[in-house]
Simulated scan of single mutants.
Amino acid sequence: MHDFLKSLNILTEKEIEQLHNFSTARTLDKGEYFIRENSVCNEIAFINEGILRSYYTNEDAEEITYCITFQNNFMTAYSSLITGKPTPENIQAITDTELLVFQKRDLVDQLTHGSPNWIKLQKHFAEQEYLNLEKRVFSYQKKDAKQRYIDLMETHPRYIQQIPLQYLASYLGITPRHLSRIRQKVTF
Rank of each mutant, 00 (worst) to 15 (best):
T155Y: 08
N90V: 08
E49R: 12
D60I: 03
D106L: 00
V137R: 13
N117Q: 13
P88F: 12
P116F: 12
V108L: 15
R148V: 03
F4V: 05
T69H: 03
I82E: 07
G31N: 11
H2P: 00
Q71I: 05
I10N: 02
L131E: 10
E62Q: 15
G50F: 09
K123E: 15
Q18Y: 01
R36Q: 15
S170C: 10
S39M: 12
Y56K: 12
I160P: 09
K143D: 14
Q18E: 13
Y149V: 02
N21I: 00
E63I: 01
A126K: 01
Q103G: 01
Y55D: 01
V101H: 04
R36A: 03
T27Y: 07
E127C: 07
N42L: 04
G173N: 07
E98S: 14
N38K: 14
D29C: 08
L172E: 09
G50L: 03
Y130L: 12
F22Y: 09
I163G: 08
N132E: 13
K104M: 02
Q110C: 02
V137G: 09
K6A: 12
Y159C: 02
S7A: 13
I174P: 05
C67T: 06
N38V: 07
D96H: 14
T83W: 05
Y56N: 10
A126W: 01
I174T: 10
A25I: 09
F46R: 00
L165T: 08
E89T: 11
D3S: 15
Y140K: 12
H178I: 03
Y130N: 01
I51C: 06
K143Q: 15
L19S: 01
H156L: 05
H124G: 05
K146P: 08
T12C: 04
S79G: 04
M75K: 06
T112L: 06
P88M: 10
F138S: 09
L152D: 02
R158L: 13
E98D: 14
